[in-house]
Amino acid sequence: MNPQNRQKKPKSSNTQWYFLSVVALTYLVLGFVNYDIVFNSLITSKNIFLKILPALGVIFAVMMLVNYFISQKTVKKYLGVSSGVKRWPIAIISGIISTGPIYVWYPLLNDLRKKGLGYGFIATFMYNRAVKIPLLPLLIYYFTPTFTGVLLGVMISLSVLQGLFFVQLEKAGVL
């Protein structure tokens, strides 16, 4: 493989396990100091977890569907080659369906930027990454379907507004 084409793979992180370990350790230590507080906290936590458990099942199913139908290659293909007004809905949809942590996308966006993709579309793409389809069941569960629908509509609209703002900044030579 040509070394120039070799892309750095992000290191897998164990941060999430460290975080859980620290919380569990805190509970353990507190258990020796004040058992009642720990017991009541565990009961409250159990109730919260039972509340979100059904949503986790739906999240898994949606994650599987998204992984089945969408890949980073697909997003790159459409975001990179489309042109004109068509780019806005493509930036929106690509942002919504893109998965994984945002830092994984920075090199790809930088690559597309060098190939001529404007900052406006990048901003719109990034804003729409906030819309997480697999996690919608949890958002609906906590905040009702109406709230979720309205919030998503507003966010998608504002993503275009932010994109247009960046188009103007780029035209003005600010960026």
Binding site: Q16, W17, F19, L20, V22, V23, A24, T26, Y27, L30, I37, S41, L42, I43, T44, S45, K46, N47, I48, F49, I52, L56, I59, F60, M63, M64, N67, T99, P134
Partner: peptide, 22 residues
């Protein structure tokens, strides 16, 4: 991939739930 995604998410989620409970 979905199992991996959920496995990555679960420790944080459980940790947060425990923190919120506390």
């Amino acid at each position: 991939k979905a199992i991996k995604g959920l496995t990555n998410m679960l420790p944080v989620l459980i940790g947060v739930v425990l923190l919120v409970g506390f």
